[in-house]
Amino acid sequence: MARPEMARGGGAAAGALFRIGAGIVGLMIALAAVGPWIVPYDPYTATEVVSQPPPPLLQWPGLLIDTLFRGAPAPHWFGTDASGLDVFSRTIVAARTDLVIALAANALSFGIGVTLGVVAGYYRNFATEALMRLSDLLQSFPVFITAMILVALAGRSWGNIILALTLLYAPIYLRLTRAEVLTLRERGFIEAARAAGVPDWSIALRHVLPNALRPALVQSSVTVGFAILLTAGLSFVGAGVRPPTPEWGLMIATGAGQIVLGDWWPSLFPGIAVSLTVFGFAALGHALERRHAG
């Protein structure tokens, strides 16, 4: 019987969320890919003008025409920060920093977690039991503080942030995949393959793995969003990438000192960028979850 709650929040709302989420995610990935080549100013080089507010919104169309067709120098669309860096260029280029770290951490934790999850679900012995306890232990650490410890002590580099996030997120994929494999291994087609004499490794690789991927894939979008939050949060407290790397959390932290003086632009624009991006990934994740729940 089709239960009415399955339809709740589905249908039109899920479709709209999917389009919004996919649109934002697509835009951010595109910016991460081409950002450094389309921005008007070098994100690392300070300009002469310091703490200049962005031009009023009404002047934007005129300025855009001037820049594109009349060869005028590009305005500082989002203003400049206290050291004269162009906020617009840095906000765009920062998409690459945050997305590369988050996507790489997600890919690594996905690969490790799913592989170990298939093994732990398929072979249930002392070693896989120990693996599950290790994953329990990792998950009982407070996430943000542990990430700070790992990155600050291992060295504040992109690679170390990716590794720290991988360590924190792999147990999620491990658990999801293992649970899926545990239900799959009792299913008829697996039993049939076993009865037909297909070797264990081949069953695991060709029959279990493709079918056990779904929960992990659905989780991916949510994990990338959280990874971006964590990356920006780490930089915000001084335990992430080093200045002057263009990175959203770092830019917000740098501009935070000026906000009480009324200079809102150096931190607000990167703030909007993080907000929008993580909402995009969350909306996409939610829509995918709904789509695959039925």
Binding site: I252, A256, I259, V260, A282
Partner: peptide, 21 residues
């Protein structure tokens, strides 16, 4: 979905700007 995905540091700064400044 929106509020649950949001970074504290962005909104803290927005709130400081709106309610204090």
């Amino acid at each position: 979905l929106f509020a649950g995905s949001q970074p504290e540091f962005t909104w803290g700064i927005v709130f400081i700007f709106v309610f204090f400044v």
